[in-house]
Design a binder for these strands. Sequence first.
DNA 1: GCCCGCCTTGATGGTTCCTTGACGGGCACC
DNA 2: GGTGCCCGTCAAGGAACCATCAAGGCGGGC
Lengths: 224, 224
Amino acid sequence: MNKVLVVDDEPALARALAINLRAHGWEVVTAADGRSALEAAAGEHPDVVVLDLGLPDLDGTEVIAGLRGWTSLPIVVLSARQHGEDKVEALDLGADDYVIKPFAMNELLARLRAAVRRSQAPAPEESVVVAGPLEIDLARKRVSRDGADVRLTPTEWSFLELLARNVGRLVPREQVLREVWGPAYEHETHYLRVYAAQLRRKLEDDPSHPRHLITSPGLGYTLQ
Amino acid sequence: MNKVLVVDDEPALARALAINLRAHGWEVVTAADGRSALEAAAGEHPDVVVLDLGLPDLDGTEVIAGLRGWTSLPIVVLSARQHGEDKVEALDLGADDYVIKPFAMNELLARLRAAVRRSQAPAPEESVVVAGPLEIDLARKRVSRDGADVRLTPTEWSFLELLARNVGRLVPREQVLREVWGPAYEHETHYLRVYAAQLRRKLEDDPSHPRHLITSPGLGYTLQ
DNA sequence: GCCCGCCTTGATGGTTCCTTGACGGGCACC
DNA sequence: GGTGCCCGTCAAGGAACCATCAAGGCGGGC
């Protein structure tokens, strides 16, 4: 199921959107201002953001800039302003699409689907990544080792998923911290060690001599 | 310069678009019907397609489907139809964006920029530099020699990467020091010798008679 | 309200890597 | 042949980084 973050300061509209989106199979989280939107984007890992311009605390463009600083997560902007430069500005800042209020629900749904599809397309994304005795099913968020299911915590999964999507490639430490914990955690390298150790204990035959979750000191981690 | 393929059967509109786009720095090729649009997309390698629905020969949705069969090239649909399902249908078929006529030129330009940026951002920069038995994969940060992986430290990698990005060219000592250690280290030439030696020990068959990591005394280093 | 799972944080010990120094060789020039 | 310069090599100390264990705190589920 795809997850969408709805950012809107009008409770009525936010609730209406949430109900409609849930009815169409989306998992919905909401935020009422820019600050909590940025937090939620980092903490909830949505697949797409619906962003209403004109929030109480931050300008909508600041929210876009704040997100684009660390993620390419698709953003669909929602606005009542029919004319003017803000549409162009939002797109140039890195928004992915723009819908004018009032809008037809099925149009918004189509644009969300398009945004998510685009963002996922470039990852050729076999939904199951195999590494030795490990099978990582990205779509179902499941991992098995020698055929037996392995239970992971949300953070462990997020870490492993990132490595799996770049299987065979070295993923830099900063990228792991940014994408798993959020942009404010780029220097919390201790987390990496703790979670790498936890994953190894669950996934490796000999956790102290890992063969699949490999550390490159000072650089990052590789799944192979 | 970015190249755009404009598909429109009205010569007047097509010409107006082409002039405007060229004025904003785009390289423009045009097609007046669906069949030639598909050919042009294959032959001209545009960065983005602007597609007017309602062509004489093929339905616009068929053009989208025809393109999506083999490429993920971004498509911006142009249409006069204000309402109805075709907007949703076009997006779901794989169009990347949708602009309704009449439209503001700067909006179309912004959407084109956004579409191109999106399509290029995730391009994983598949560049592998080969020098004799060495293969240097810049994206994966991996080096192999005769097919076997070679482990490098962060500083060694940074040094080698710089040389690999300028393979065959002499990289001045000062540039190496600046880009690997930072601007304050421009005169620490000793570092160069130590790390050049370490790299040779890992990469060369006979480290004391290097064939790939070449020193030009007083000038700099070359990878070949 | 309690319990449990998970995240965070600290402490410790081991490893890797960077920096720095010392020494010898080749080369040009005097 | 001596001198100076630059390069290559080796080695050691210390800093940065990693692995592991464990405990406290927080929140969600019951």
